[in-house]
Design a protein around this nucleic acid. Structure first.
Length: 209
DNA sequence: TCATTAACACGGG
DNA sequence: CCCGTGTTAATGA
């Protein structure tokens, strides 16, 4: 299985076999909701391959994109959520065809004690996500929407490895927690300025962006 | 000033 | 036809 390909370098063989034995492999199709806000979390998602997005649910029913997670990453937000058996404050949604391992919550604790590699993996993940969260907070607090949109597009292109982005204006609006009208208007301006090309459900970034 | 909400027309799949 | 898109007008923060 490609679990070894993804994690073989990081974890000792004993831990690898325990993962294979006790975690459940889940395949999610594009757009599939892996974990919904409001649910009690009993497993922690460890991404094997593919890409998921982590969304924060706001009070007003709006959502905000927190960060993406690719293969080899674990959702540490889920870890903090599930420890106290609180309802999840985040959703996990597959951005593309994704394979992930659902790790039972109680094993997280046990493995932290038992395996040094697991402990440092979790701590490193927390550090990396914490940095990403601070970046997101900076954007929301200090950047105007047009700059946030440009950063969003660049990030999306970087993560998918393609300047051709497949999203609707409505989806962008939801991920940035704003309205579709604004996104359409800003995108149109960017197109007028030769920064990108607009199609239906697709945006092609140009080098000038 | 800039975002939001509602409303409408256009057109491609 | 349905949905995504482009625009406008009214209202609000």
């Amino acid at each position: 299985m490609n679990i070894k390909a993804q994690f073989g370098q990081i974890f000792e063989t004993e831990l690898l076999s325990e993962i294979e034995e006790k975690a459940t492999l889940i395949r999610a199709k594009e757009g599939e909701i892996i974990l919904n806000a409001g649910q009690i979390i009993r497993v922690v998602p460890l991404i094997v391959s593919g890409l998921v997005k982590i969304m924060r649910a706001g009070e007003n029913g709006k959502e905000l994109l927190l960060y993406y997670l690719g293969g080899g990453n674990i959702c540490v937000m889920a870890v903090t959520c599930c420890m106290e058996r609180h309802p999840s404050e985040i959703s996990v949604i597959a951005e593309e065809e994704t394979e992930l391992l659902a790790i039972p919550v109680d094993l997280m604790d046990a493995w932290m004690m038992k395996y040094v590699t697991w402990k440092s993996f979790i701590l490193r993940s927390i550090r990396v996500r914490m940095n990403e969260l601070v970046n997101t907070i900076d954007q929301v607090a200090f950047q105007k929407l047009d700059e946030r949109l440009i950063l969003y597009l660049k990030e999306k292109a970087r993560i998918t490895g393609s300047p051709l982005i497949r999203v609707s204006h409505e989806q962008i609006a939801q991920e940035l927690a704003t309205s579709r009208v604004v996104i359409s208007r800003l995108l149109k301006i960017l197109e007028d300025n030769k920064k990108l090309l607009l199609y239906r459900n697709e945006i092609r970034l140009l080098d000038s962006l």
